[in-house]
Design a protein around this nucleic acid. Sequence first.
DNA 1: ACTGAAAGTTACTAAGG
DNA 2: CCTTAGTAACTTTCAGT
Lengths: 164, 164
Amino acid sequence: MSDKERDEVRQRRHKPVELDDIDRKILRELAKDASQSYAELSQSVHLSTAAVHDRVKRLKRDEVITGTVARLDGCKLGRTLLTFVLVDTSSYAATRELLAFNVRPDVEEIHSVAGDSSVMIKVRANDTESLEAFLMEVQRLEGVRSVRSYIALSTFLERGPIPD
Amino acid sequence: MSDKERDEVRQRRHKPVELDDIDRKILRELAKDASQSYAELSQSVHLSTAAVHDRVKRLKRDEVITGTVARLDGCKLGRTLLTFVLVDTSSYAATRELLAFNVRPDVEEIHSVAGDSSVMIKVRANDTESLEAFLMEVQRLEGVRSVRSYIALSTFLERGPIPD
DNA sequence: ACTGAAAGTTACTAAGG
DNA sequence: CCTTAGTAACTTTCAGT
């Protein structure tokens, strides 16, 4: 692998994209409400619609913007029980098994976390019964040492990444 | 307050909205990609564009769809260190103080969780130094008993609520 | 890199079935 | 819930600065 190729990979993996104040303002606006038109956006940043269009296109090409999605209300969908589940496993094999839970519609996040080969799972279950069923499925896996659950009582903030 | 009024409030707060299979399909599609046109959506659900339009309008009115947002790449923004911070406080007053962290751009989620008046904070810091600065700010608060940090090594799934 | 305007699509509404 | 149709609003492109 040449220096150039390695640098390109490194850049793709690690290096943040260079953004100016206007880029950040656009990103903040779109992270808050992506349904607004380029005309509205252009007023926020004091640029023409075409200029905003170019910048948004670049931000999408550079994958700073990875997509546009609808935010849904968990309660209105019947998912009333948000829980963070911390699973401690004795092997990486068990950790890998946990990743298969990504097919469940009530599982929203899966992260491996530092320390004792653990996995953090954010699950929004319909009710206590389905949470219990989920926890039992996790417990049942080979190599699962412990499962700790943190049930959310109130949510005060919930959003995605935004720039400084 | 009349029975009718109370029921309306109750419905607004607790009762999930009645959804059929087509509604759920539309919601899944929009949660995945809200930039697609009604023409594309109508092909997914085998309905006319006008019918899809009506349904989406209803889903927004009923606040099943709470908004449309751009998903941003944390790494591309320079936020490389995702951490779940579990704060144990000795009083509700201290818990309330933690809510003030919602103004920080690196804090993405704040939930109160069951047991020992704890708070779960999801923070996506720029680097280890800014994470340390954040943790020290939390530690410094009156009534904070303990702070446990779970640093994410890899993220395998990260999305919002979707219907069954 | 931005502007202004033109060209092409889509969103939205309404009427009739 | 369907189709058709029509307008307004929006996205996208491009020549010009």
